[in-house]
Design a protein around this nucleic acid. Sequence first.
DNA 1: TTCGATAGTCTAGTAGACGAACTAATTATC
DNA 2: GATAATTAGTTCGTCTACTAGACTATCGAA
Lengths: 400, 400
Amino acid sequence: MERDAPVRPVQQHRHNLALVTRLAARLGPVSRARLAQESGLTKSTVTQLTGELLDGGLLREIGTGRSGGPGRPANLLVLNSLGPAGIGLQIEADHVAGCLLDLTGRVRDRALRRADDLRGDPLRAVKAAEPVLRRLLNTANSTDNVVAGVAVGLPGRIRDATVVRAESLGWTETNLPWLLGDRLTALGAGGIPVTVAGSHQLAARAERWFDGEDGDVLVYVGGEDGLGAGVLVGGEVHAGARGAAGELGHVRVGGAEEPCVCGGRGCLDTVAGQSALLLAAGLDGPARSRLAGGESGLARLVRSGEPRALSATRRAAAALGEVLGGLVPALDPEVVVLGGHFPALGEDFLGAVEAALRARCPGSATRVRASRLPPDVVARAAATTVTDALIENPAAWFAE
Amino acid sequence: MERDAPVRPVQQHRHNLALVTRLAARLGPVSRARLAQESGLTKSTVTQLTGELLDGGLLREIGTGRSGGPGRPANLLVLNSLGPAGIGLQIEADHVAGCLLDLTGRVRDRALRRADDLRGDPLRAVKAAEPVLRRLLNTANSTDNVVAGVAVGLPGRIRDATVVRAESLGWTETNLPWLLGDRLTALGAGGIPVTVAGSHQLAARAERWFDGEDGDVLVYVGGEDGLGAGVLVGGEVHAGARGAAGELGHVRVGGAEEPCVCGGRGCLDTVAGQSALLLAAGLDGPARSRLAGGESGLARLVRSGEPRALSATRRAAAALGEVLGGLVPALDPEVVVLGGHFPALGEDFLGAVEAALRARCPGSATRVRASRLPPDVVARAAATTVTDALIENPAAWFAE
DNA sequence: TTCGATAGTCTAGTAGACGAACTAATTATC
DNA sequence: GATAATTAGTTCGTCTACTAGACTATCGAA
């Protein structure tokens, strides 16, 4: 409900529609009676609201449920897996991944397009996204899902739906919704709204929902070469005054003097970034894509006690812990989640980061844990922004 | 509007009441027609709502206004300076200050009680607060103001309306609302709700409203010996997962090894805290209370080029800048405001802090400025939480 | 078969915002 | 000065959407 807007009966209705839809999503198969009880609305109102949601294709009736006691058995309602759905895309320098997510949160289809190098002209990435989109749109067509929106996650700074800067892609001031919207029209799916979000921010949201223990204040650190963080405050993404919240890659760390691509020296990226870390450990060759998964060669070297690998990871952990220790007193997050290439470095790395964090910020109760989400989180989390928006404002969907 | 609660016509009414009241507060003397235009409600609704607000004593009619053109002149409405008001208290180790604030934001009365040492038993502070409260309650009585609430600001960590820990006062787990409520009953003013908030958080709120240029994300750093920060995100105080957001005093800074009262070494307090700074500069004797105002003796020494004073302030600025540079990438605040004993250190100090911040966090566009608010901000900002609550929820006041 | 319990629908009632017509008070114009 | 134009504010009937409570439906248990 907008704070500075008047509330009329329509807004009241919108709010209650969203309330019921949200509860239906949270409670799974649920009776109207239960929805009335949980929402605080009356049975008659719930009948009315669920009626609209059924007509609009957001809910589905799945016959009568339990008969564990006396009384008429309930007609159970669930979110409609065949109704509106969302497409999520992840754009990285070496691939475009995508998925189609229905309202219930189930992935109906995935698509992946690898590419050598998508850096430079954004149109290159848009072109690589085209077959991914085509496949997902086709799937949606064949499963009777209507695509309600396309959300894109990419490693960069976003403001006002525009990519302000995406370092690892070489983009600046790119109006991606516009470019992709064009492509969608070419694919016969014009008019579908397109949104963009930072991949770290999306991952942070995903971590929040993944682990029920994690509170409303969470920091997710991700990235391979360009490190960055997604900051959640009150369960929502905190973008910062200029959209720069979470840009950790070029924070200077103590004792580091390596030159960085940004022109400066001693940036966190040059110590804890994946390529820099591998190089320092004596492992040259290209950095592994996060798509691979599993324990890294570096982690094996560290466990075997190889001196250069040991010292490089120790230094990376110290630097990362120092930076995290700097932001913890400002945010007091419930937890800091390490993603990107960090989980593959093993438990010891995690412990070293936490130790460095505590050394800087001894009083803090913030936990540090590794991300347990699969590498395709970003596309999936992007897709959930579409389905979440549907659940949070069903009326907007009906209007369309 | 609560997210998980149903919205009925009553809530709709509450929201619109608050909307109109807020606009009346923002626009000053204003006609019903203008309120209708700005709020988006119809004239008839505004008549109805303002009628209630007039009856409830939140608004007052001040006769007809301008006649700068054709048409019937407006009957102007303003917030009622004689209606409900708020009392704000500031509790520090050496004094209790208080003020009575009416709805329009005007200070109707002030009171101050100095004391040698209020540390230790919270009852000592409560006792010192009693004459302050008595005076303010008397004033309210004589000016026909009804005290709608008492809000207390103190340097400490607050959670669930309870003081978790106030280092400079020596308090732990203190239920101040309960203690003060008791005192209020003894003063014949029982039943008035009492709230507590951290003084840095309150100061941050005040800075936000003071300078229109400052955005929704702001960090205020304050304190004399125990440094701390108030963090505003989206214009609201960010407390952190455990209420520890902004606790900067015991962050370790590079190159510092002095033992701290907390048992650790190298805390920010031991380098940039007021007493520590004076000591390092060779100025012993008690630290000046912030109530004094004006340029400090230390600032004069620095300007005259006294070596110890110079090196001590340089080191303090570097340490503070380092810590601020650590939190800036997480929050991306529009501005960092330096309060406490820092403004008295002069412009050069400010510049040195900003330089140290940039050295750590080169890409940031965050500004650093000195607080321009008077030393009694905390009591006043506390009082505004009471009046703000009235403006944000007039219906709750009518109910009482 | 009947009764109690629970699910869900239906209908009248109500709160509160809207809209149009109306009154009120002023300036501009003839 | 009478009258028109303009803006302020009120009144009253209408509309939307939630509530309450009666009513129907469907089950288990006696």
